[in-house]
Design a protein around this nucleic acid. Structure first.
Length: 366
DNA sequence: GACACGTGGGC
DNA sequence: TGCCCAAGTGT
């Protein structure tokens, strides 16, 4: 293996003949093999948009039920624009990357206010919307409006890496720009949306990260990696660093069938989401000190501490080692602004990220 | 450019 | 089991 920084900076564009074969074979294959997915029912730009946001870093099978519920709850761009923030987040609960929902909501409101509810069909306008980056710009413009704009995602980068034996590290942002130049040459005038989707579909179904199904690949005849038997070596990608381990305490405070919940800060991990009161960066050694400091900060007093259990939750970049601690709240002058008593049987009305759902299950189900 | 940002599935 | 991932974007 060559070192990763030795990748060629030159963009070697595919020949006209290769372009021809890829276009024809891929479009024909897509026509016969594409999956029947809910966002392929029509080309409503709003529906395409929602699907593209949900699909970011998220599997198709995971997205489908969320997509169906979301579109049935917010069937039009106007209905989403008019919705309360809480309702939008609640519909996103469990999907992860919650800033996607906030950005989508904000962008949809902008489209209704600035563009009369019509999703823009110009790169300059749509790429300014919150949560719409280079990939989503290309996806919406090509799929919904049949514009010849690249939509280069992880699938496309993997397909191109193999098809043209591109050695660049696909985790580098600069690599995507190179891939976009190739895509611009490859996309046919006639059906850019189908072609972009065909590229992604190929990556998802045939040109998979592990064990690619080269024997069934419609572009096998022009694939350089296959010709060289190197399909398992490509694409190149820097190994991810493993999540950093952090000790965390969730505090379980119940009184008269009510429990204290906490609204998380507006920035950072699980921003805006409901949670149990959480002590982050807690040292496991001395709970008392940790709790005293916590009580000082919140201007409250906690007594009768009992450890109720432990829980691990691994985010993409952080590993929470959670201790569930039950406590009683001594009478205090006032509750912190971010805290609220809620009836146990009303917990389901709030949007909790999954890590807190798991904790609640453990605590409530005896 | 590098890192933050969730979750669940597959091997 | 632990690691890699899955239709990226914001900072």
């Amino acid at each position: 293996m060559e070192p990763m920084n030795k990748a060629n900076n030159q963009v070697l564009l595919p020949s006209d003949q290769v372009v021809e074969v890829v276009q024809q074979n891929l479009l024909e294959w897509y026509g016969e093999n594409k999956r029947d997915l809910p966002w392929r029912e029509n080309k409503n730009p709003y529906r395409i948009w929602v699907s593209e946001i949900m699909l970011q870093q998220t599997r198709v099978d995971t997205v489908i039920p969320y997509y169906e519920r979301f579109l049935s709850r917010f069937p039009t761009i106007e209905s989403l624009a008019a919705a309360a923030d809480e309702d939008v987040i609640k519909a996103w609960e469990g999907l992860g990357y919650y800033s996607r929902a906030r950005n989508l909501h904000s962008a949809v409101k902008e489209v209704v206010a600035e563009y009369g509810g019509k999703v823009p069909d110009k790169v300059a306008q749509i790429s300014k919307l919150k949560g719409v980056g280079p990939y989503t710009t290309g996806a919406i413009l090509s799929i919904a409006y049949d514009k010849k704009v690249p939509a280069v995602d992880g699938n496309v980068m993997r397909v191109f890496s193999r098809l043209f034996t591109i050695e660049d590290d696909i985790s580098q942002q600069s690599t995507r720009k190179k891939m976009e130049r190739i895509a611009e040459k490859l996309i046919p005038e006639s059906s850019p949306g189908d072609f972009n989707q065909a590229l992604m579909e190929l990556g998802a179904m045939v040109c998979t990260p592990q064990s690619p199904k080269c024997l069934f690949c419609p572009v096998q005849s022009v694939c350089k990696a296959y010709q060289q038997g190197r399909e398992s070596e490509l694409p190149r990608k820097k190994k991810a660093t493993s999540p950093k381990s952090v000790d965390v305490i969730f505090v379980w405070i119940v009184s008269e069938n009510k429990v204290l919940i906490e609204k998380r800060p507006e920035q950072g991990l699980l921003a805006h989401m409901w949670s149990l009161p959480t002590i982050e960066q807690a040292k496991k050694e001395n709970y008392l000190e940790v709790f005293n400091e916590f009580c000082d900060t919140k201007n409250i007093q906690l007594t009768n501490l009992i450890i109720r259990g432990n829980l691990d939750h691994i985010f993409s970049h952080i590993h929470w080692k959670i201790t569930l601690v039950q406590a009683d709240l001594k009478k205090s002058v006032s509750l912190p602004d971010e805290w609220e008593w809620i009836a146990l049987n009303q917990l389901h009305t709030r949007a909790f990220p999954n890590v807190y759902r798991k904790a609640l299950q453990q605590l409530v189900s005896i």
